[in-house]
Each structure stands twice: as C-alpha cells, then as structure tokens.
Nucleic acid binder design. Structure first.
Lengths: 157, 157
DNA sequence: CTAATTCCTACTAAAATAGTAGGATATCCT
DNA sequence: AGGATATCCTACTATTTTAGTAGGAATTAG
C-alpha cells in the first residue's frame, strides 16, 4: 500500500510548478533542486506528465515547464493516476479496466477493496494544487508569527 | 498503491478460517485449495500471522489452524498491518514509527498522505471477519432465491 | 508405526524501483 | 552566427521486492 517515488516526486514537482504558476516556464533543474529530486530521474517523470497533458514544455534557453491548466483545475488524483496508474488496491477493482478474476461476483474480499479504493479517490480527487499553494501560504504566515520557536521538539535530521 | 498478494491472500485465508470458526483446526492445504493459493506460499504467510498472534496452530495429524480470537474481534486492518506493514502511502506518515525526512514540518505533501492514510485505516479497521462471513451468508441466500440467472452478464473466466 | 500436518530454512526467476548517462534537438540572447 | 540553456529520447544498471518452489525435520492422532 505504498506510493512509489514516482507519485511522491510527481506531486512535489507539480506543486512547485503551481507555486510558480504565472511566472513563465520553470526549468526542470530548478524544480529538482528545490524539491530535492534527482534531475535525471525527474526528467523521466515529467515526460510522463507532459504526455498525459498535465504540463506543457517550452524548449530551448529560457525554456522549462508550465502547468497546462490552472492549479485549481488539477487534483492530486490526476497526478497520481498518471504516474502510478489507476487507483486501486487490487487489480480486480481497477477504476479503468478491472481485471476479472475467477468467481468475480462471488468474491467478498472484492467489496472491501472497492471501499478502500473509493475512500482513497475521494481524498485525492478533492485536493487541488491550488489548495496546496493556499495552505502553504497560510503556514508561512504562521511560521513568521511564531518565529523560530515553532521548531521546538521538531525533527531536523 | 497496490496491495501485494501477501495482503490479498492473507485476508482470503483469514476469511476462510472465519467461515470455519468453531469446527476445530483447519489444515492449511484445504484453505489453499478453497482459496486458490499456492500451499507452499500460504505456509509462509500464515507463519507471519501466527507469529503476530492472529492464528493458533495445532501440529500433527488432524491439526491445522484456528483464529486465535473470534471473527468479530479481528479486523481487516489487523491482517493487513501484519502482512504488509504499517498502513501508510509514504513512510513519513507511517502509523508506528514515521520516518522523518528533511524539513518535516514544512512539507505540505505530507498532510495529503496523512489524509489518505486515515481514510484507508478508517475503512480497514471498521470491517471485521465476522462482517464478511455475515455478508457472505446474505449473498448466498440471494443467489439461491434468484437462481442461476444471477450469473447473466457475469464474468466466468 | 504411519499418515497427516505444521515448522523452518534456503533457493530462485521475474519484475519493479530508482536511478545514471549520453547525445540529439530546439531556442533565446548577444 | 554562435554559444549557452534547455528539453527530448533512449539505453543501461544495481538493488530490492514479489511470488513463489522445495526439502526435510518435528509433532501428534489414530
């Protein structure tokens, strides 16, 4: 039940693009640095996002990547589906083309996996990149107010 | 975001034991046959479940496995945690010992994974083996009432 | 004693994961 | 025009995980 780095890095990269939305194309290496991801690896991930139509690319100097829709129109579910495939704890409840097993309609475990799938998609489809940017802004305000004390007891490895 | 066969098979096997609860020890090979799982492989999985205290074993002839608690006291979450490890889409929101990353408290993606984790655990912890047995009984009644026509349009590979 | 059954350990093929790497191509800027 | 900055595309690789297979020792009912 783990997400791979594809999904994790993908969401981080898309969030980075959302934060910089409106300021022209963002070069991949700057994203990779800010988000602490291997540039080579991120290249492959963003290629998937581009082919799926979630980001647009601008080639050449001063080029980079741009969200192809405004942040409020891209959900975390959109990103995860593209990078990790259809959301489903097991293949027989795959959103797109559920893979039939023997005794399909008699399997009780199946109904459980459907419930899990639905609860996950509910969460992922309800959060947009704009929501994340908004929350991040709020958080920064709080940190300024509270100051450095906010890190008391915090982890800083 | 997929479950491995460990979790899937484990739930099936535990459900099988729940259906046969009260009728003495159930030999592993009969479970494997009914649930269509490799016996050799299931042996390893049930060893994990036994060490975790979810099933008891009876060795020797006429031996087998028994749920160590009544079906109403075992949830799907219990089983999944034992076989797949703590429920978490990413390690930094691990239920047991979250693995800290750099800039822990500043990561917005983290709050998303927490929401996903919570919605999954809510579902898995709310379903017991007894619930499954109950639902299965209901279903069998329906099938008897409707008869063979219930499979019209059904998959039967 | 024997058949049934759990228990324990080791082995393995195939796939997925998480990168690394190199060169071709395109475009801005001077 | 030419160099610097980028994307684009493909191939390679080490490590880990997955999903088993296998063999034999230990235990117990009948």
């Amino acid at each position: 039940m783990k997400l791979s780095t594809k999904g994790r890095y993908g969401v981080k990269a898309m969030f980075d693009l959302a934060q910089n939305y409106g300021t022209g194309p963002i070069p991949l290496n700057s994203i990779a640095q800010r988000q602490n991801i291997s540039g080579y690896y991120l290249e492959q991930l963003i290629a998937i996002l581009r082919k799926a139509g979630l980001v647009k690319s601008v080639r050449g100097a001063q080029g980079g990547y741009i969200l192809s829709r405004p942040p409020e129109n891209i959900t975390i579910g959109d990103i995860i589906r593209v990078l990790e495939g259809p959301i489903a704890p097991v293949d027989c409840v795959n959103e797109e083309e559920p893979e039939p097993c023997s005794k399909w309609e008699f399997c009780i475990t199946r109904s459980i996996w459907e419930k899990v799938r639905d609860s996950v998609t509910d969460v992922l489809d309800s959060i947009t990149l704009a929501d994340m940017v908004e929350e991040e802004k709020k958080r920064n305000v709080n940190i300024k107010e509270i100051g450095t004390t906010s890190n008391i007891g915090g982890v800083n490895k």
